[in-house]
Amino acid sequence: MGIGTWAMGGPFFSGEKWVLPKGTPIGYGSAKDSVSIRALHCALECGAKLIDTADAYGAGHCERVIGKAIKGRRDQVFLATKFGNVIDEERKELIGQKWSERYISDACEASLRRLQTDVIDLYQLHISDLPIDAAQGVAETLEKLRGEGKIRSFGWSTDDPERVRSWSAIDGAVVAQFNMNVFQPAPQMLKICDANDLTALIRLPLAMGLLSGKYTPESRLPADDIRSAGPDWQRYFLKSGGANQEWTERLEAIREILTSGGRTLVQGALGWIWAQSERAVPIPGIRNEEQARENLGAMEFGPLSRDQVTEIDALLERS
């Protein structure tokens, strides 16, 4: 199990030439660095090894927070970050996407500086829909960085099986990062990871927080929270800032199973992911020490049983 850090970047927004309209919030609202650092320390003490981030989170700010948090603890961390979104740190904006060799090399150096480290354990392409032909050139650049000792391995953050398959024969490509949770299975992606000996790094394992059970249709998230912005791929929350009732009703239908054996909803949702594949490594996001302890506490319970998974499929009317 790893830890996601998107929420630790604080507010940041789409710039003029990014993929969403200018001014669209892309973060999870405000974050206090001291709280984030304590949360990361707590996660490591509770057994987390992998910290996943991106230069995009907070337009560089999240990497800086992590760099401070792991100073003196670098040997305890498998450090993963991403590239592909051009950032403006001063304006807290994403201002485009690039994937040239020069850009990747410069982005890697910038991430190394912000993270205060000599090497990145896992460097991931953060452009989900980059054409496969262009991505082959990216892989060649990443192999060069690996040869230079600046990264140890690489992967692609994408939900497309064919894109993952296109990198499967490349030595340094060891990970596919993709969305998966109890509401959003990803059997094709898991099948490709199994066939090609890839680790499945699972983002949005808690459906952007909906699976915590804390949000209702009456909830009102802040205006600078991406869950209030309503991008097309974000299905769990409405532009009102409330939870999507369709999904809260589904959560209620499976609540009893997820909370079996003393689990919290969060721990049951993570147990569902482990039940899908031994390759699956969820990276739930955290903001504070309480969330770190709850998430990591899921490891004490382990995966749901096969019968429980089957019952969830029936309740959610999945074949």
Rank of each mutant, 00 (worst) to 15 (best):
E16W: 07
I257A: 15
E300A: 15
K49A: 13
R235A: 05
D194W: 02
C108K: 01
G262T: 04
G29I: 07
G172R: 01
Y103W: 04
Q308Y: 02
Q276G: 05
Y215S: 04
R279S: 07
I51F: 08
Q76T: 03
Y123H: 04
I3F: 11
R74L: 10
T264N: 15
V19R: 14
K22E: 12
K98L: 10
L40S: 00
P205N: 10
E249K: 14
G9E: 10
A59N: 05
D307Y: 10
C108G: 01
A39H: 10
G67I: 06
G241R: 09
L251R: 09
G147M: 04
T24F: 09
Q245H: 12
L296V: 07
A107W: 03
L270M: 10
A31F: 13
G58P: 07
L142W: 06
A48L: 12
I312M: 09
G297N: 03
H61E: 11
L198P: 00
E140N: 05
K98D: 05
P25N: 03
C108Q: 00
D52N: 11
G60C: 15
G4K: 13
L304S: 02
L115P: 00
V77Q: 09
R235D: 02
Q245R: 15
R152A: 01
L270D: 02
E162Q: 12
R163Y: 05
G4L: 12
A207W: 09
R306D: 04
V174E: 02
R227V: 07
A110L: 05
K32I: 14
V77N: 08
A135K: 03
Y215F: 14
K82T: 07
W233I: 13
K144F: 00
L211W: 11
L44G: 05
R220T: 09
G242Q: 08
K92A: 11
V309I: 05
A269W: 13
A314G: 04
D52I: 09
R293H: 05
V175P: 06
I202M: 11
S219A: 13
M180R: 09
W233G: 09
E140L: 11
Q116M: 06
R113W: 06
E63H: 05
N295E: 06
L238K: 12
G9C: 11
A54K: 06
K82C: 15
L112C: 01
S260T: 13
E148F: 03
E140D: 09
A186S: 14
D194M: 06
G261I: 12
A275S: 13
G9R: 07
E290A: 14
V309P: 00
K17G: 04
A186Q: 08
R203E: 03
T117S: 06
P161T: 04
G72Q: 11
W6G: 01
A186H: 02
A135V: 03
A169E: 12
E218N: 14
D106I: 07
N181W: 10
V281I: 14
P231Q: 07
I254S: 10
G262V: 08
A169Q: 13
L210H: 02
C42V: 12
D160E: 10
P25D: 01
K17Q: 13
A292D: 08
L20T: 01
V174Y: 01
A280L: 11
G230E: 04
Q136F: 06
E148P: 02
S14P: 07
G67D: 02
R203I: 09
I312N: 02
L296E: 05
C42P: 03
F237M: 13
F301W: 03
P25T: 01
V281N: 03
